[in-house]
């Protein structure tokens, strides 16, 4: 590691640092309400320093639950279409966890890869990510199965090392944010950071040890378990409410809806999140391909661990454990994986 790109910031300077960011960027940071989530903040004192991930992911900042594409109106000489795509301000997201940064990478592949979504792209571009190491894991966390807490891409990464935050720089944009308040980190500080990360990752391993390292091999194993009796058992308890899809930071399905006024002279087209757990999801004019609930339960798992491996050679899961936390029926993705891979 090059020590030139590692700094430290005294903890009492964090508010000053954040306020300087707010002056330049639209800043989103964890805010605790009924559920903890990323919200736009206008003053550093609104930020809550949570010990681990938020209840809601970053997804809705870039891909809101409901979004209008365009409006149309009948004028004298034909229809006039107004695009609802607005230029997006420079964003900075503070306090992102490793699982969420990874999830954003995966979401980017779906939304800006072979198919490019202009609405997502507009919101996503010019986004600065300042991440933070978790203090301790949640009971549902299992990010170590996907490579641990620290992702590959970030602009700045903060780790709590006592009186200071150790700050790692991951990009040029990140480097520009480093000002005079930051001090050079010592070998000792880096050692403390590593110890800290090791400790938390060990904690996660202790509560959930799932070995998914051999991506191809594991996904193949899951793929061949189409007839596994577990799917039917899960279907018995699944409520098909779609919450696991909506909360998932990498789920990206949406439904397109047209609305008009009574005479059809004006209207709008919008999209709304959709869920593969719903009966209507795979319904076509001829056939409903996933009528049975067990097929839908299975499809979600396949769409996280099989299909993305075939397309992008990566899992579309980052081990954040949100689906486990939110499921009213108590379905635990880790139990499914253990059953499939064992």
């Amino acid at each position: 590691m090059m020590t030139n790109y590692v700094f430290k910031l005294p903890k009492n300077r964090i508010y000053e640092f954040l306020n300087s960011l707010i002056a330049e960027y639209t800043v989103y940071a964890p805010v605790e309400g009924e559920t903890s989530r990323f919200e736009r903040i206008t003053d550093a004192c609104e930020v809550q320093f949570l010990p681990n991930r938020t209840d809601r992911s970053l997804k809705s900042i870039f891909f809101p639950p409901e979004e209008e594409f365009f409006k149309w109106k009948k004028e004298k000489d034909g229809y006039v279409v107004t695009d609802s795509l607005k230029p997006s301000p420079k964003k900075l997201i503070f306090g992102v966890r490793g699982c969420d940064v990874r999830a954003l990478d995966i979401l980017d592949r779906y939304m800006m890869g072979e198919f490019s979504d202009p609405y997502y792209k507009e919101r996503r571009k010019n986004t600065v990510i300042i991440g933070m190491t978790c203090d301790y894991p949640r009971s549902s966390c299992f990010c170590t199965a996907f490579g641990g807490m620290i992702p590959h891409h970030y602009d700045l990464w903060f780790t709590d090392i006592g009186a200071y935050y150790l700050v790692e720089v991951g990009s040029d944009t990140g480097m520009k944010l480093i000002d005079s308040q930051f001090q050079k980190a010592t070998e000792q500080d880096i050692k403390r950071k590593n110890q800290r990360i090791e400790k938390v990752e060990l904690e996660i391993e202790k509560q959930t040890k799932i070995n998914l390292c051999e991506t191809k091999h594991c996904s193949q194993k899951i793929k061949t378990s189409v007839e596994h009796p577990m799917w039917k058992e899960l279907a018995e308890i699944c409520l098909a409410c779609g919450k696991c899809n909506f909360i998932c930071p990498t789920c990206h399905c949406f439904d397109v809806i047209d609305t008009t006024n009574l005479d059809g002279s004006e209207g709008a087209r919008m999209r709304r999140w959709d869920s593969c757990h719903l009966y209507e999801y795979a319904k076509t004019s001829a056939e409903n391909f996933r009528k049975e609930r067990h097929a839908r339960v299975r499809y979600r798992v396949f769409d996280k661990f099989v299909f993305p491996v075939m397309r992008y050679s990566t899992y579309a899961c980052t081990g954040c454990g949100r689906c486990t936390d939110i499921c009213p029926a108590g379905i635990d993705i880790r139990e499914i994986l253990r059953e499939m891979i064992a």
Binding site: P65, A240, C241, G242, F246
Partner: peptide
């Protein structure tokens, strides 16, 4: 679909 879906949205 269920009310849960709209609630989650």
């Amino acid at each position: 679909s269920s009310v849960c879906v709209e609630c989650a949205l």
